[in-house]
Simulated scan of single mutants.
Amino acid sequence: MSAKRICIEKDKKTSDDDKVQKVVINSLDYDSLAQIFMLLPVPERIDIEGVCVKWKEACQLSCLPKEINEIHLFFESLLDQKQTRSMRMHGSSYEASRELSAEVLYTIFCTCKNLKHLDIVHCRNDVAEIPLEKWISFQNLQYLAISCNMTPDLADTIVKYCKNLKHLRINNRHHIINTALKTLTELENLECLILLNCIKLNKESIIAISNNCKKLKRLEISIRSIYDPPSSLSDLDEISKLQYLEHLKLCIGKSLKDSTIIAIANNCKNLKSLEIAGCSAITETALVALTKLDNLQKLDVSFLHITDSFISKLKGLKELHCDFCEQLTEAGFIQLIKNNPDLKEISVLGTDSITIDLVIAADQATKHRTNGIILHIRKYDLELTQAFKSIIKSQWLVVK
């Protein structure tokens, strides 16, 4: 047999062996592949993810230990390509891109029985498609952030199995079923409830939150509309029953009225943060009632019709956001800075109140600070920022 023929037959045999090996490895299931990839260094796993979809999902599974306590999803656009293709581990915390596959999501529900923190609000796969009985794995869950079609059955399941839940965030692609929301208010240990985007609430849901969620410290509601006519919007006043509230955010447009703000000011004495940006029906008369809140540190009244008279009465603040409050002048801001020595941020985007006189006054008011707090005035105007640099002498003042 010639050497040439031997070489040809050897190359043919090697090629056939490679095909057999490829067929064998591709016939393995996800778990078996994950077990193999788990033995590889992380950089090599990242490269393997680019081979095919199946290998990518298997690599994701290989990074998912059963003893994990936290899972977070992040936006790919915030990271470079290398990070986007990877799943990051920090101790018992697990981070992944929103490309989390249905297979990996299912595995999380089946295997992570010690999970306490699950943040998959950016997941493209619908959590509602996971079999309801798989939620039994999450009896230790304390933090849940999801985006899905919240049905009554899913709400019943969460209440049944996730009795230790303290933080619940629902970011809906559609509208939440009010029956489901009323069920979720039965979570006895709930301290934080965040309802975002296209959620529509009726008065029964508002009342259920107010009556059942007695331990709430944080409540955030962002909705496009409320089903009920304006005559029943006084039911929003029921929120003031939540006397342990420390952080309240109500982005509900004209649905929020003066009576609710006054009720909150009278009853929610532990309130530290209030965000009511864009609630244009609120008048300054109601806002003045907020000066009764001795613990209030952060206030967002952007897009509201407020004047110097109001902000001059504020004391104890650390943050004030008043973007596009066009009636405010430098006189009001100067008095605000003097009255609030711990003030660390003023946001004034869309106003013409940041003048040289205001910067000089702020410079004088902050240069003798002994609390170590830097005051940031945020105008987001590069030209003004450059112009004010030569004026500012205080190490405790920054204009951006």
Rank of each mutant, 00 (worst) to 15 (best):
R5W: 03
I8K: 12
I8C: 04
E9R: 09
E9N: 07
K13P: 02
S15L: 15
V20Y: 05
Q21A: 12
I36H: 03
P43Q: 07
C52D: 11
C59W: 08
L61C: 09
K66V: 12
I68P: 04
I68R: 08
I68Y: 05
I71E: 14
L73V: 15
L73P: 06
F74T: 02
S77I: 10
L78W: 14
Q81M: 04
R85E: 11
M89W: 04
E95Q: 12
A96C: 15
S97R: 06
S97L: 02
S101V: 13
T107D: 12
C112E: 13
K113Y: 02
D119S: 00
N125K: 12
D126A: 14
D126M: 10
P131M: 12
L132V: 13
N140Y: 03
Q142E: 14
A145N: 10
I146E: 07
S147P: 00
L154I: 14
V159S: 02
H167G: 01
H167Y: 07
H175A: 14
T179A: 04
A180Q: 05
T185E: 08
T185N: 06
N189Y: 02
L190S: 03
L193E: 02
I194Q: 05
K203R: 07
I207T: 15
I207Y: 10
K214N: 12
S222V: 15
S225M: 08
I226P: 01
S231F: 07
D235Q: 09
D235P: 01
L245W: 03
L245S: 06
L248R: 02
K249Q: 11
I252E: 03
G253S: 11
S255C: 12
K257E: 14
T260S: 13
I261Q: 06
I264G: 04
K269A: 13
K269F: 05
L274Y: 01
A277C: 07
G278T: 14
T285W: 04
A286M: 05
K292P: 07
Q297C: 08
L304M: 09
H305N: 15
H305F: 12
T307E: 04
D308W: 00
S309F: 04
S309H: 03
F310A: 02
I311L: 06
K313E: 15
K313S: 14
E319V: 09
L320Y: 00
D323Y: 07
A331D: 15
Q335K: 15
Q335M: 08
L336Y: 06
L336F: 08
K338R: 12
N339K: 12
L343R: 06
K344T: 11
E345R: 01
S347F: 01
D352V: 03
V359H: 01
I360A: 10
A361L: 10
A361F: 08
A361Q: 10
T366S: 05
R369F: 01
I373D: 08
H376F: 09
R378I: 13
T385P: 00
A387K: 12
S394I: 04
V399M: 01
K400E: 07
